[in-house]
């Protein structure tokens, strides 16, 4: 590469890097700094104190909330993985023409480009006390009383997570599956493997990178979520981000910042563990 072209290269990548520096690196650094600040009811005071962390980590509420968030993340991960893998498997290995594959793939991905808040709201007429689900079950005589747990409960929170984020599993796993050399499957069959054995011993191991990428998306989104928890639990459940949002609305910025730092460390550790399984750059 000549001197000129390397200069052009830097110019080409500079604007994007600048956006990340100004709106990702500097803000995260600000959170870290502010988490050591002091505050009173009206303002934040520059200082270096550990009190925000002490108050956070010594409160049992914090631990309960973190556990609750991790529980949501684990359940959602398991469900989205099982459903997403099955859907991707159907698309990749059972749909025979490329046209149908593209059409069905689009059907799965289009909701990703629409509003999450609206998609949450749209569950309300479905799950409510007088909603479609209860009405249908009552008419069928399956239940005598409307089910109360359908809306504004942990059930509806997880249901909406699965509704919103299964797609993040389908896309990368489908991508991995499409790269599997079909000759390998034939070889497995010739060697006497049943369909199930081929799935477990050939397809799943080769899909690991896709599974890891999907898992990273789902787990990080659920760990940082508060809109779904607030809207779908009707204020009955808590999440770490919701706890932060509450601190923010009380103008306790340093407390929210300390919580944000702890959450960030937890998220990054989870992602690092999952990254060990995959080289993302090879996946493009």
């Amino acid at each position: 590469m000549s001197r000129f072209s390397s200069w052009t290269t830097y110019l080409q990548v500079a604007p994007l890097s600048l956006v990340f520096l100004l709106f990702l690196v500097v803000p995260i650094a600000t959170i870290v700094v502010v988490s050591f600040f002091d505050y009173n009811t009206t303002q934040i005071i520059p200082a270096f104190i550990l009190q925000n962390y002490e108050e956070l980590l010594l409160s049992p509420v914090t631990w309960q909330t973190y556990l609750q968030t991790l529980e949501f993340a684990a359940i959602t991960w398991l469900l989205t993985f099982l459903i997403g893998f099955t859907l991707a498997y159907f698309l990749a290995f059972h749909v025979r023409t490329t046209t149908w594959q593209t059409v069905l793939f689009l059907v799965c991905t289009i909701p990703f480009w629409t509003s999450n808040v609206i998609r949450m709201i749209s569950w309300i007429p479905f799950l409510g006390r007088n909603g479609l689900a209860n009405m249908t079950l009552l008419k069928m005589g399956v239940i005598q009383q409307p089910l109360e747990f359908l809306l504004y409960s942990n059930f509806s929170v997880v249901l909406v997570y699965v509704h919103l984020y299964t797609l993040f599993m389908v896309v990368p796993i489908f991508n991995s599956m499409m790269r599997i050399d079909r000759a390998l499957l034939e070889a497995a069959r010739d060697a006497g493997a049943s369909g199930w054995q081929t799935l477990i011993n050939v397809i799943v191991p080769l899909c690991k990178p896709g599974i890891a990428i999907g898992s990273i998306f789902v787990v990080t989104i659920v760990m940082g979520d508060f809109v779904t928890v607030r809207m779908m639990s009707g204020g009955l459940s808590a999440s770490v981000a919701l706890m932060m949002a509450n601190a923010m609305s009380l103008l306790q910025y340093p407390a929210a910042a300390a919580n944000a730092v702890v959450l960030l460390i937890l998220v990054l550790m989870t992602v690092a563990a999952m990254m060990c399984m995959v080289d993302i750059r090879k996946e493009l």
């Binding site: 940082g224 910042a257 992602v271």
Partner: peptide, 10 residues
Amino acid sequence: IVPSILISLG
């Protein structure tokens, strides 16, 4: 991967 809410807060 950094949760949206943290970027917003930052």
